[in-house]
């Protein structure tokens, strides 16, 4: 009798399995304009303003098609024009439709940024459109987007070594990617050691939700002039990492000030001299 029940269960399971197989065709990417969350985000950020999408010559977005590691998905935003004082990208909105907090980052840029390129890494909760919307200094809007598939069960947007992440919190590193040349855009990298957690996790012992702890604001300046100011949240991966450009006119200090959700402040700077490759923390 036991076996009979078992086989009935298995038959049900097999039936469900067949059903499931049919229910999973090779899905085409969903219609990006019909994403409900996007419609809400769009209305709150841009109201009725028109956004140019297809084949625009202002901004591109590179992501992997599949997120190999959902906790660390590399994102590259590239501007197709230099930052001229007459015409430049003033703001870039990074939106991940299906994340718990879809507006992952808002980057404010200036002509001193040189190029409005930003490389970073994000968490992606589930199959989702990722969008980069560039707002020009004249208010025009341009969007690039990619559909990203998370890669499977093992891959979760959580940290790999939670204790180590906390132990190193607040450490920062700056790196210049090449010898510095004056009066043209130079590539820099800012690394911030921070668990950047969402606070959506429950502590199993106390049954309380772990409070969120994430980097919320980053200001980068060179010789006192703003290069990049970013409002970010826990959609950015653990140990937030940004590559960006700045245009030095003379020797000076590249400085970063970071504030996290507990109002803790972290500072870092690096001395920049023409012809020198440097890194510091």
């Amino acid at each position: 009798m036991k076996s009979f029940i078992l086989s009935t269960r298995l038959a049900l399971a097999l039936g469900a399995m067949l059903f499931t197989t049919h229910a999973f065709p090779a899905d085409p990417d969903p219609d990006p304009a019909k994403s409900e969350i996007w419609i809400k985000v769009k209305n709150s950020l841009f109201e009725e303003r028109a956004i140019e999408t297809s084949g625009n010559d202002i901004i591109t977005l590179d992501t992997p098609v599949r997120a190999e590691d959902a906790a660390t998905v590399p994102i590259a935003i590239k501007a197709q024009i230099p930052q001229n004082p007459e015409k430049y990208v003033q703001t870039i909105y990074l939106v991940i439709d299906k994340n718990p907090s879809p507006i992952a980052a808002v980057f404010h840029l200036t002509p001193d940024s040189g190029r409005a390129d930003i490389d970073t890494r994000v968490r992606i909760e589930e199959y989702s459109y990722v969008r980069a919307i560039a707002e020009m200094n004249d208010g025009q809007l341009y969007m690039a987007m990619r559909y990203v598939k998370a890669s499977g069960g093992c891959s979760a947007p959580a940290g790999k070594d939670q204790e180590a992440a906390l132990a190193r919190l607040g450490k920062m590193k700056f790196r210049l990617e090449n010898e510095v040349a004056l009066n043209r855009p130079n590539l820099a990298q800012l690394m911030i050691s921070h668990p950047n957690n969402s606070g959506l996790q429950m502590d199993q012992l106390t049954r309380h939700y772990i409070p969120p702890r994430f980097v919320k604001k980053i200001d980068v300046s060179y010789s006192g002039k703003l290069i990049l100011s970013a409002d970010v949240d826990f959609s950015i991966s653990e140990n937030p990492n940004f590559r960006f450009y700045f245009t030095p006119r003379e020797s000076g200090d590249l400085k970063a000030e970071v504030i996290d959700s507990s109002e803790l402040k972290f500072n870092s700077y690096i001395r920049v001299e023409p012809g020198v490759t440097a890194s510091g923390s």
């Binding site: 399971a13 469900a16 499931t20 069960g153 979760a156 959580a158 939670q162 996790q201």
Partner: peptide, 24 residues
């Protein structure tokens, strides 16, 4: 450290299970 890891990842694992392996 298993309870903390389960707490941090469990929700995602359940979503992925449903999505990738189906109703069975």
């Amino acid at each position: 450290k298993l309870p903390a890891a389960m707490a941090a990842r469990g929700g995602n694992y359940l979503n992925a299970l449903k999505r990738d392996l189906g109703a069975a």
